[in-house]
Design a protein around this nucleic acid. Sequence first.
DNA 1: CAGAATCCCATTCGATACTG
DNA 2: CAGTATCGAATGGGATTCTG
Lengths: 242, 242
Amino acid sequence: MKLQKETKTGRSAEPNRRKEHGSWYGDACGTAFALEILGERWSMLVVRELMFGPRRFSDLRASLPGISAKVLTERLETLAGWGVLEKKQLPPPAATQVYELTEWGYMAERAINELGRWAARSPLHNPMLPVSNASIMSSMKTMQVPEHMAEAPDMAIGMELGAEQFRVTVTDGQFLAERGVIEGCDAVLRAPDARSLAAALYGDVPLAALEAGAGLVVEGERATLERFVNLFDLPPKIGCAG
Amino acid sequence: MKLQKETKTGRSAEPNRRKEHGSWYGDACGTAFALEILGERWSMLVVRELMFGPRRFSDLRASLPGISAKVLTERLETLAGWGVLEKKQLPPPAATQVYELTEWGYMAERAINELGRWAARSPLHNPMLPVSNASIMSSMKTMQVPEHMAEAPDMAIGMELGAEQFRVTVTDGQFLAERGVIEGCDAVLRAPDARSLAAALYGDVPLAALEAGAGLVVEGERATLERFVNLFDLPPKIGCAG
DNA sequence: CAGAATCCCATTCGATACTG
DNA sequence: CAGTATCGAATGGGATTCTG
């Protein structure tokens, strides 16, 4: 395959052959190919940030603490080159552009979430640490308790996380989360950050306590919200390495 | 900056906070955490190579074309530190050591395979390119056609891929692959490399043609083998970016 | 064989400044 | 806001050598 090396100087002639479509690992099968696409630092998190709909450059940057403009630009270009996302010009009124996953890009959701679910079972993982808004929203998808979800009544929950709003619906036991307005929901949960929401969903603390201590605000049907947060739970930890 | 330094490196104050548990991305939720564990170059492929059982250092190295001893050593150490795998001393007779996934490590299989399945749907992916033995074996797990598998008779297939042997069984519609001897199988397929096997499984060429042209050798019940290769198929490609 | 230790360049990243 | 340009720093990792 692409194992050609040392053209002249004997060593370091061609240090890294990255970026030539399909030759990072010299292994063309699925997983290696996926890693060529999503395996660079930040790439997968960029994709996850777009899972709930198109976003602007600066929004992405704000959601990915630590990423530089340079790297974000590079990742977006590379991912667009692979057909994972597209750059779109918004119509004239809003003279701005957004990045949006392609149909195929959206299909990465299951794989990405599955990774997260796996990692969450590590004894070394502390789910109460600070998390981004997109990550907590994603996590709900994988942390559903099937039995609870099956018998859950339809509901629409508004989530306000800092400055972002999500609309979460349960319909016939199907979970759906999207960015959007929270008006018209059965209940609304406002949280100062994703961490507080994580505590509500995955912690053992009752909602009322979080309202008192963590800045949570409940509006609308409280009972519905109580029921909602019980639809999710963390998978059991594994006792590894011992 | 901090003054603490390593016992040997002399410098390396602390420019990047990597490697300190939980701070690559400043995001503690599942996916980011998974990327801290498996997101470094080669890490996920190392794990996949161990999916079919414990392996020695040199076997791993041989299976991962392009990885250097240094990098493999580093990855194994890091992964062991996270509790993904363990280094084990084999009993005296064989004075050698092997690396084996922990219980939790084995659980990454679904996520890794899901990634591969997703990537294989890219129009830019050519499944006929050279692949490693472990990757083709892994791929079979995700490329099962449920309807065919449901009505498949029990069978044991031996696979010889170059120097490696796998034993693949279908029992009550359940697929299982493991490293092991091929003796006592209903049929045996010998292929010079994984690429030939990929052609048999996912290509449209009949087995007979591959025997003539690609060095495949069929032993035992040919009809069983014909049926076997039809249990797998690639997921449909996506017409992305168009 | 299994890996530790060295050497050392190129890639990559982050910070800053700049531009349309 | 949405990037681009430039620069210095350090990390990664390939090749090589050495050891038990």
